[in-house]
Each structure stands twice: as C-alpha cells, then as structure tokens.
Amino acid sequence: MRQALLRWLPQILLLALLALLLGWLGHNVLENMRERGIRAGFGFLLEPAGFEIGESLFDYDASLPLWRAFLTGVMNTLRVALPASVIATLLGTLIGLGRLARHPVPRRLCGMLVETLRNIPLLLQLLMCYFALTSLLPDAADAISPLPGSFLSKSGLFLPAWHCTPQCGWDMPQVAGFGIEGGWSLTPEYLAVLIALSLYSAVFIAEIVRGGILSVSSGQIAAGNALGLTRLQVLWHITLPLALRAIVPALTNQYLNLTKNSSLAVAIGYPELVSVANTALNQSGRAFECIVVVMAVYLSLSLITAALMNLYNARVALRGAA
C-alpha cells in the first residue's frame, strides 16, 4: 500500500503541476484578451454563419449556425483525405514494387518519380497542379464532353448523378447559364488537392513499401521459391504479409500527415476545415476559439486514424513467441 502510494505520488504531483500550469496559462490568456478588449467564449458557434461555402456534401447555406459551417469544412476535409489515402496507398504500393523491379526501366522511372515528387514542397505542387488545371481546361462556356453526359471545364468535372428527391432518376448535367448546371460536380480545387495530395503521399508510401519488402529476410523468400511458388505467389503469400509488419506503423504516419497536409488546400480555394475556420475566424473575430476548434478536430481525426491503424497493426503483427 505504502509502496503503491510512493510509486504513484510523483506522477500525481506531476499531473497536478501540469494542470495548474495549463490553468494558469488559460487564465492568463483569457485575462489578457479581456484586458485588450477581445471577447472570448464558444457561444458564437450557435449564431448564423452568414457566409456561403462553395461546395458541400450536405445542404448548407449562410443562414445555418456556424457549427454547421465547421461541419461542412470537416466533411470537405474527409471528402478529400479519405480517397487520397486510398489512391496514395494503391499508387504507392505500385511505385514501391516498381522500384524493386528486375527490369531497369520501371525501376529508374519509379525512382525518378519518387525523387522529384518528394523533394518539391507540397504547397508548390498544389499551386502548380491547380493553375495547370485552371489554365489548361476550356472555359466554362465551351466545356468539353469527354464521355456522353459528362462535361469538363474550368468549372470542374460534371457527371450524371443518381437522385431520389423528389423522384429517383438520373440528374444529367446540362449546358446552362455560365457553363454547366446540375449533376454531380467535382471542382478544379477538389481535383487539384486530390491529385497533388495523392501523388505526394504515394511516393512516401512507395518508400515505406520498398523498405518493408526489403526487410523480409531472404531466407523466407528462398523457402517460398524452394516450394516451387511463382514470383507473384511468393510476393502475395510470403513477402507482402511479412512486409506489412514493417509497413503498417509507418503507414499510419503517412495517413496522419496526409490529413493534416490537406489544410494546405486553403491556398487554392478548396473549402476544407482550415479554410472555413479562417473565414469564421475573420467574420467573428474569435481567433482563439476557432483555432481551438481546428486543433480539436485534427487531434480527433489523428487519434481515430491512429487507433484504427493500431487495431489493424495488431492483426498483422507477429503473434505469440515468434
């Protein structure tokens, strides 16, 4: 009993000290803000947002409360981060395998891709991708139709959408007004973020995959070969499952990075969380509160991602004494 107390006491003290320090900092922030005539509090999240958001998954308009604007921002972050994670993983695996290919052409090509993309700042790639899209694509008024029923222009990619309000049926995009209306649309901002983020993350994932595969001991592979398995069979049944042990923890980092990197999209006008928070911050003047909301959201997203990846990691990790 005494011993347990002695063991816990320093920790409890440390925790109390930390809480005290945080409390003191918080108090001082609020005090200083009050002193300078800056108001504080989270009630403003319930007031009407008052600004429009260019694209949203659910219905949103300026008369809704501000927290709905934040939610729209979070959804937009996820709408780009999730598909980008999937694409980056698939693409990264391919590039990683490519770098290990026996044939020098794919090996060199993949090597070049990795070295170029990972050494150019993401922000630059994002801007380049965006301005390439907006200058190369035709004006909204002269949209091209790559496939029947779809349109591509500076206003984005328009595809037929399945709608059930009020009746089920296809909502076809149509030439109207300033360009195309109706259907399901992907803006050039969204496409640019998706492409840039996927490519940038893919090359890092490629290196992780390559490293993971190289970490599989050659004895295991030789054993596979001895059993008469083909190269692909060895890869699929032996190398990859073993490599996953090394890959998954590092992959978690990449997904976390990718989600946080999506905040760079503010630069090109994609309304993800940070962009919405910036607008909210400037309309309401609540810099401190808006940043707290953004940090809380990213922290939650990161913790959820990490938890899911840890679960998966536990499944692929070596079990038992081995």
Partner: peptide, 14 residues
C-alpha cells in the same frame, strides 16, 4: 458559388 482564397495573389490569378 464563392471560391474563397486565402492569399490575394491566388485569388486574382484564379
């Protein structure tokens, strides 16, 4: 539909 840019330059370039 607003297209909202953080930077001045990106906004007029777009």
């Amino acid at each position: 539909k607003p297209v909202v840019f953080e930077g001045f330059e990106a906004s007029f370039k777009a």
